[in-house]
Amino acid sequence: MERTFQKVEEILKKHEYKKENLIRILLDVQKQYRYLPEDVINYIGVALQLPPAKIYGVGTFYAQFSLKPKGKYTILLCDGTACHMEGSISLLKAIEEELNIKPGEVTKDLVFSVDQVGCLGACALAPAMVINEEVYGNLTPEKVKEIIKKLKEGEKDAQ
């Protein structure tokens, strides 16, 4: 991904390079990158003359910020007892094959990220996953691939 800090500079400028606007700056960075990248935090530290540890402290305090990249589509794959027994591992394999990422990772184009989570409370639909708050249940590896492919196509069309 191209990162010239152009966006960060725009954000900093919008908020007048003021320390008191740190939270707003980070909110905008979060919106832009969907997380707070380490080099961006360092860059903001340089620009605002704030210790990076301080910015990190703010970034980890508020729920709106994420320190790890998240995709535009965050796939939460349930690995609770019920889903596990119903074969959530095979779903994970399908996702890995389709997107080439492991749990906790995000695709290079930042469109998809995958996380394994404990029970989603959808045991009756096991195995289940949630993509951006939408629950998909009674899944098979094929179904999973199909869902992801559809989202991918939607992305292409959007571009």
Partner: peptide, 25 residues
């Protein structure tokens, strides 16, 4: 307007003030 970034404790007035100053609430 100052947007809160998601911390319940910022409803406490001194925490809210810290947050307005751009700090941990």
């Amino acid at each position: 307007i100052k947007e809160g970034a998601g911390a319940f404790v910022c409803g406490e007035e001194t925490a809210l003030l810290a947050s307005i100053e751009g700090k941990r609430g």
